[in-house]
Every structure is written in C-alpha cells, then in structure tokens.
Simulated assay, not measured.
Amino acid sequence: MPTPHLSLKERNAYRSLEDVVGCKWSAAVVGALQRGVVRPGKLERYIPGISTKILNERLRRLLEYGLIVRRDLSEATTLHVEYHLTPAGERLAGIIEQLHALQTEHDATRDAK
C-alpha cells in the first residue's frame, strides 16, 4: 500500500530537481551544451532572451547539481572557460530531447485536427 504522503526527504529532492530542470533556462542551457556550445559568451548568444545574470545563475545551479562541469583553460594572458555535460547531464539532455520530440509530435497531432 502506498504511503499517504511524500516524506520530507522526497519533497526536498523534488524541489531541488524542479529548481534545476523545471526552469526553462536550464533546459535551454543543457540543450545548447549537448549541441557543443560550451563557452559562456556563445551560450548567451545561442539562447535567445537569456541574460548574462540568468545564464550565470543557471550554470551555477547545474554545476551544484552535478549536471555540468566547468573547465578553466587558462592561457598565458586570457582566461578561457568551458562548460560540459557530466554523464548525468547527458542523461538529462536525452530526456529533454525526448520531451521535445513528444511536444513536437503532440503539436503536429493537434494541428492536424
């Protein structure tokens, strides 16, 4: 028999997950990283409407959650930063792509009626 409610631990896990993947910007950042856009400036240009502040916030949250890693590739005079998906981030990217395909399929079915 199922429990009558979610435990506090389960609720906190859902809240944390919602904060990371429930944000439209997180999905866009993960999708861009999956497509090979790894530099912060390029991410900002690749994702229409995202501000520098929101991009940095989302990158921090994705880092904290372990979905991406930051690579500092410092050269003699310049700092070069890249972000890459972790294996968990790759799995999430696959799920996001499945959701996108489902939405596209749903839209096509709805438009055909």
Results as ranks from 00 to 15, higher is better:
85 L>T: 10
106 H>G: 03
98 Q>E: 09
102 L>C: 11
93 A>F: 02
106 H>K: 07
85 L>K: 08
78 T>Y: 00
82 E>S: 07
105 E>D: 13
85 L>E: 07
81 V>S: 05
100 H>C: 04
91 R>Q: 13
104 T>M: 08
98 Q>N: 11
90 E>M: 10
99 L>I: 08
100 H>M: 08
98 Q>A: 10
93 A>P: 03
89 G>C: 07
93 A>R: 05
93 A>K: 02
77 T>S: 13
105 E>T: 12
91 R>E: 13
102 L>H: 10
87 P>S: 09
77 T>E: 15
80 H>M: 12
86 T>E: 09
102 L>Q: 11
80 H>S: 14
102 L>W: 08
96 I>V: 11
96 I>C: 01
102 L>N: 07
104 T>H: 12
84 H>M: 10
104 T>N: 10
105 E>R: 03
83 Y>I: 03
106 H>L: 14
92 L>R: 06
99 L>W: 09
83 Y>F: 15
99 L>N: 12
85 L>M: 09
89 G>D: 05
97 E>D: 13
90 E>K: 14
96 I>P: 03
101 A>L: 13
82 E>F: 00
98 Q>C: 05
88 A>C: 08
95 I>T: 12
83 Y>R: 04
105 E>V: 01
79 L>T: 15
86 T>V: 08
98 Q>Y: 02
82 E>W: 01
79 L>M: 14
100 H>V: 05
85 L>D: 02
104 T>L: 12
94 G>Y: 05
89 G>I: 02
95 I>C: 11
88 A>V: 10
84 H>F: 12
79 L>K: 14
79 L>A: 13
100 H>Y: 02
98 Q>L: 08
80 H>K: 15
98 Q>H: 12
106 H>Q: 12
98 Q>K: 15
85 L>Q: 05
103 Q>R: 15
83 Y>S: 01
80 H>P: 03
106 H>R: 09
90 E>Q: 14
93 A>T: 04
103 Q>E: 15
105 E>A: 11
89 G>R: 08
86 T>G: 10
97 E>F: 00
79 L>N: 14
85 L>G: 00
82 E>P: 02
101 A>Y: 04
91 R>M: 09
97 E>C: 02
81 V>H: 03
86 T>K: 07
83 Y>A: 01
88 A>H: 10
89 G>W: 03
83 Y>V: 04
96 I>M: 04
99 L>Y: 11
104 T>W: 07
103 Q>G: 11
103 Q>H: 13
102 L>G: 07
85 L>P: 05
95 I>A: 15
85 L>C: 08
83 Y>D: 02
103 Q>D: 15
97 E>K: 00
103 Q>N: 14
100 H>G: 06
96 I>K: 07
79 L>V: 15
87 P>G: 04
81 V>D: 00
88 A>D: 15
82 E>K: 03
100 H>P: 00
104 T>A: 14
91 R>W: 00
90 E>T: 06
98 Q>V: 01
93 A>I: 02
81 V>C: 04
88 A>K: 12
94 G>K: 06
86 T>L: 06
80 H>D: 15
100 H>S: 08
91 R>G: 07
94 G>V: 04
90 E>A: 06
87 P>N: 08
103 Q>W: 04
81 V>E: 06
95 I>Q: 15
103 Q>C: 09
82 E>H: 00
99 L>V: 08
94 G>F: 00
106 H>P: 08
88 A>W: 05
78 T>N: 06
97 E>H: 02
87 P>Y: 02
